[in-house]
């Protein structure tokens, strides 16, 4: 390789992969495998697809394979990321790849986690535009500047890489909305067309929903779409404080 700008990757990849089949395994275990990369800088998902051809019992989610559907979030060599857009040159520069499910959520099987809690938190912030005034015959107008407020917010793909890297979400997933949910909360608060600011803010003023964020920014570091939930949380907090004093 090299000519197309990609990094040279070792031929033999040492993989350690989290396995748990509830019907077969009493406890989760790490399976050690070797994989022939042919020196190509494959994506981690390519490697998984190759492994699954050899062992069809290996389970994980995947769909678009281009980083927009958010299915294949997992913990790749210690960092949450999407398998389909993480090249080996980044995930296993030393030829060792460690794959685990996203931390903090119950494991269903192998790399598949139960995302119920994550989705529930998303639903809790009323993730839809609220504007009960009768709509005009055409679109509601919005200036490019107003629309620009939504950039960096609406692009979230709900992959859960951020929330499952957040200790506050690990400790209190029932009560802390988590970075992904709060990013969407701000997406609607920031939308010039939404009229439910007061209700949205009232729903977040308790001690847990938003205020459990301690600003450690794991969410920012782990977002595969380079979004910034911490900044969004800060924006909501400022609004809440402005509203209170």
């Amino acid at each position: 390789m090299g000519k197309d700008g990609s990094n040279v990757v070792s031929n033999k990849l040492q993989i350690s992969i989290y396995r748990y089949r509830p019907e077969h395994d009493e406890a989760p275990w790490m399976q050690d495998l070797e994989y022939e990369t042919g020196g190509r800088d494959l994506m981690v998902l390519d490697v998984l697809e190759g492994l699954r051809e050899q062992d069809p019992s290996l389970s994980y989610r995947r769909s678009c394979r281009e980083g927009v559907c958010g299915s294949d979030g997992m913990n790749i060599s210690g960092r949450n990321n999407l398998a389909c857009i993480t090249p080996l040159s980044q995930a296993a520069p030393d030829g060792r790849l460690v794959l685990r499910p996203l931390p903090g959520l119950p494991v269903v099987r192998d790399l598949v986690v139960d995302m119920t809690m994550f989705y529930r938190q998303y639903e809790s912030i009323a993730p839809y535009l609220i504007n009960d005034s009768p709509p005009p015959a055409i679109e509601r107008l919005q200036s490019p500047e107003q629309r620009a407020q939504l950039d960096g917010l609406y692009e979230c793909i709900l992959c859960a890489c951020c929330s499952t890297s957040c200790p506050s979400f690990w400790w209190n997933p029932e009560r802390f909305v988590g970075p992904a949910g709060l990013l969407q909360a701000w997406r609607f608060l920031a939308d010039s067309r939404d009229t439910a600011d007061e209700e949205r803010l009232a729903g977040l003023e308790d001690a847990f929903s938003l205020f459990r964020c301690h600003g450690i920014q794991n969410c920012v570091a782990s977002c595969p779409k380079k979004l910034n939930p911490t900044r969004a949380i800060g924006e909501i907090r400022n609004q809440l404080i402005k509203r209170a004093v």
């Binding site: 209700e199 949205r200 009232a202 729903g203 308790d206 205020f211 509203r243 209170a244």
Partner: peptide, 24 residues
Amino acid sequence: NGAVRAARVASASSFGRTGVQDWL
């Protein structure tokens, strides 16, 4: 359904304070 159905936290354990008050 236009109302925001936000995740309300059981307030017993926070002794009735809000996060905003705590933060301030």
